[in-house]
């Protein structure tokens, strides 16, 4: 009887077979309300430990800022969980069940972990529109791409995103001709259109004007909730404006974790990272 039910289900006229679906929904187990479990990650480059027993748990839907001095291992941490850099030991789970460490970059991206790079890296030989189109959440297999026809809905979506990032006048301009700040925005647009579950954003406001920075802050805050956003940033003003929870990395491991206020008052943090300028800034605030 059960098989009959299943067959009915499969043959139902509105049934969309999984192989025809543009994107297979990934089942991420967040029963414990944690979306990323990072435990004991260690990565060394020629004996130098860029990550040293890093432990980090990120709640589903939170906006987390990661700060730390140059070379603290912030980018390396993103490289490891997105499949770019292999790690020596430790584990990284997406939800309770998906092991990120045995996935390739493309697989991690298809799972719904999107990334914005520290150095803006858009495809300069393609237009703004085409850049966004490539990042669109669709079937990314070879055959599907060869016979791909954009749907009106997707076209609308792309235009919406271009509107959000304010690059409408540049829609059909080669992205190589954009300014640094515009490239940053384009990358953010590519991140948005991919509709990821987790966004890893590495230094989003570098090279942006104060106004642009403000808009970025708004955008990132609005994304959190439905999505999980992890932001790496040096700009303390910016971090303060968006952060609820901050993690401080130091020499490849977590030095402190807490609200911005707790971090600012943490003696250890003051000592090794924030230094005088932070203390004085904090005092002024």
């Amino acid at each position: 009887m059960k098989t009959v039910e299943q067959a009915k289900e499969i043959l139902h006229k509105e049934q969309v077979w999984s192989f025809m679906q543009s994107e297979s929904a990934v089942d991420i187990n967040v029963d414990k309300d944690i979306i990323l479990y990072i435990e004991g990650l260690t990565v060394s480059f020629d004996g130098f430990k860029a990550l040293n027993d890093l432990n980090l748990y990120v709640r589903d839907g939170e906006l987390r800022c990661v700060i730390g001095a140059n070379g603290a291992g912030k980018t390396t941490f993103m490289d490891v969980i997105t499949g770019k850099t292999p790690c020596d030991s430790g584990s990284a789970y997406f939800g309770q069940t998906i092991n990120l460490l045995d996935k390739t970059e493309a697989e991690v991206a298809q799972l719904g972990i999107g990334r914005k790079f520290q150095k803006p890296s858009v495809f300069e030989a393609l237009t703004v529109y085409e850049n966004i189109e490539l990042a669109l959440k669709t079937n990314k297999s070879v055959l599907a791409t060869l016979f791909y026809k954009i749907t009106p809905k997707q076209h609308e979506r792309i235009k919406d995103v271009i509107h959000i990032i304010g690059l409408e006048p540049q829609t059909h301009l080669l992205s190589g001709a954009l300014s640094h700040g515009q490239k940053q925005w384009l990358e953010i647009g590519m991140l948005l259109v991919a509709d990821p579950r987790v966004l890893l954003v590495d230094e989003p406001v570098a090279g942006m004007t104060a106004q642009e920075t403000e808009r970025t802050a708004e955008l990132l805050t609005s994304l959190a909730g439905d999505r999980t956003v992890i932001v790496v940033e040096h700009d303390m003003e910016f971090v303060r404006s968006i952060a609820k929870d901050v993690t401080v990395l130091h020499q490849g491991s977590v030095l402190a974790e807490g609200t911005m206020e707790e971090i600012q008052n943490n003696a250890q943090v003051k000592e090794v990272y924030l230094g005088e300028d932070m203390v004085s800034e904090g005092g002024a605030a």
């Binding site: 997105t82 770019k84 991206a109 890296s121 030989a125 991919a194």
Partner: peptide
Amino acid sequence: VSIRDAENRTRFLGYK
């Protein structure tokens, strides 16, 4: 073209 210009970046968009 994306692969030609930035293969790594293309991977992060989910293309094998």
